[in-house]
Amino acid sequence: MPQVEMEKVEPLLEQFEDQRINLIPILQEVQDTYRYLPQEVLKRISRKLRVPLTEVYQVATFYRCFSLVPRGKHVVQVCLGTACHVRGAPRVLDRMLRDLKLAGPGTTPDLQFTVETVRCIGCCGLAPVARVDNANTHPHLTQAKVGGLLKKYQEKAEAPKAAKPDEASHAKA
């Protein structure tokens, strides 16, 4: 587990009053900042808000938007709802996992992508659909489109460096 930069937490905690109702907003901010909830940070929050650590942990493990292990830069949510399922979402997911060399939904070792499966994201007319970073929805996916989708975010993520050639070519293939 990487070293946690604790200095980022303090200004973040300053924005909120020390009340237990602020627990979830704080956790959301931490999740956005670190892309996961580091153990040290949770302990700090527990002390600051005077909420038992068990309760912080309970909330952190309850909601799916929180993660206790580092997540990738881009979170790809592949919808496996009924409509998406019948229109081939499992195949899209398989292709995506194969392109990212993942055994199952999870995070790539280079922390660029996290693949998640979700139930329904509420646009069954666009099935099969995937959503990236909770914002960009990609409709009517096919296996052929998966490579392009990943490449788009890969390039953005690796803008200063050269995109990894082997992975890009693998995605096209």
């Binding site: 038992p52 650590l53 942990y57 309850f62």
Partner: peptide
């Protein structure tokens, strides 16, 4: 407050935070 619930649904269980001795 040394133990609490963690997870949700089928995965809900009584546990200590981070599964470490509290």
């Amino acid at each position: 407050g040394a133990i609490g619930f963690s997870g949700r649904g089928l995965n809900r269980s009584v546990s200590r935070p981070f599964d470490m001795t509290s």
